[in-house]
Amino acid sequence: MEKASAHPLAEALHPPTSTGEDHRKVLMWLFLASDVLFFGSLIGTFVVYAQRVPHTPLAEVFNIPLTTWSAFVLLMSSVTMALAVWAAHSGKMRLMRFYLLATVLLGIHFLADQGFEFYHFVHDGFTPRTNPMASAFFTLTGFHGAHVTVGVLWLLSLFLASFRGGITQRNAIWVEIAGLYWHFVDVVWIVIFAVVYLIGASFW
């Protein structure tokens, strides 16, 4: 049997698994299934309150062009992430680093857009304390932003680790599972964009 590589990120020796799949990949999918429930409850609460609570029409609160741009940015970050995963699996480490960095920068751009958006909301008197719908909105999008932040930090760490030979084709699974997380966070935003922003500003 081979010895475990000296670099700590190198794949720990895995005996054969019952499914043939890596433990960490199974773990990430289980985590994502669980996170669906977390965001589902937040979205459900928002929808309930958006319909019931007296509040300023969302069409007057939201900036659809800005939000469309940031949603697009996040979508494109999923593209770069998918390319990073492909590059890692293909052994093209420099290309992987490029795409990882691109994803990080797009993610930071998304967060900056959100920060800008929140700043203006608060400035206009739309805060988490304004009414229950607002509380739900800020909590939902805030936790999503926190998920993006965690993702940015994670991808940044992978980017940095890859410089010392930490990421190789052999342990590309690390990039793959980070990618799964990142795509999930994007997918949640796809739902939020449709339900909270588009439907919200059209009807509530």
């Binding site: 609460t45 309930v48 309150y49 019931r52 609570v53 007296p54 509040h55 988490p128 304390r129 304004t130 009414n131 229950p132 719908m133 607002a134 509380s135 739900a136 800020f138 909590t139």
Partner: peptide, 12 residues
């Protein structure tokens, strides 16, 4: 000070 359960603000 959010209003999730503040009945006076419409919370349920």
């Amino acid at each position: 000070g959010t209003r999730f359960f503040d009945a006076t603000a419409g919370g349920n």
